[in-house]
């Protein structure tokens, strides 16, 4: 129970600071500033990540229900779907596949991660031993 209150407290403080940041800087929505501030709090260890984890995961698991009212707005768009349904699907479909292809291709080609960093350094080490044995 303590941890639940602790989590709610930390999230509220972050959201409050987010509102302040939104008021001063505009650009991002308050909740997104809040999200970044919350992550920074945990990173800087001002608040304990261990204490918030459980409650936080419960929030994330059930947050979907908060999105239902927004999605229900579709009820006002039946004419749009009738008129442009195919166009909507084509746009969503094609841009999703463009994004998949770009990100997939670029990260396969250019992204150096710890695992292929290891293989690269192993290769260098092997080459060194080879040249060394010559």
């Amino acid at each position: 129970m303590n941890n639940v209150l602790y989590t709610i407290f930390v999230i509220s403080i972050s959201l409050l600071l987010g509102k302040l940041a939104n008021y001063l800087l505009a650009a991002l929505p308050a909740s997104l500033y809040g999200m970044i501030i919350y992550a920074l709090f945990l990173q800087l260890n001002w608040f304990s990540a261990q204490k918030v984890t459980k409650t936080n995961q419960w929030f994330i698991k059930h947050m979907g229900v908060c999105l239902v009212p927004a999605g229900m707005g579709i009820i006002n768009h039946f004419d749009l779907i009738q008129q442009h349904g195919l166009a909507l699907v084509i746009i969503i479909f094609s841009s999703t596949f463009i994004l998949l292809t770009i990100i997939g291709y670029l990260s396969e080609r250019f992204l150096i991660t710890p695992d292929n960093h290891k293989t690269i350094t192993n290769n260098i080490a092997q080459n060194n031993t080879k040249t060394g044995s010559k």
Binding site: I11, S12, S31, G34, I36, A39, L42, N56, F59
Partner: peptide, 12 residues
């Protein structure tokens, strides 16, 4: 919805 988005700071 607002506090729910803030909660996404943990996975971040």
């Amino acid at each position: 919805l607002e506090p729910a988005i803030v909660a996404l700071g943990l996975p971040l």
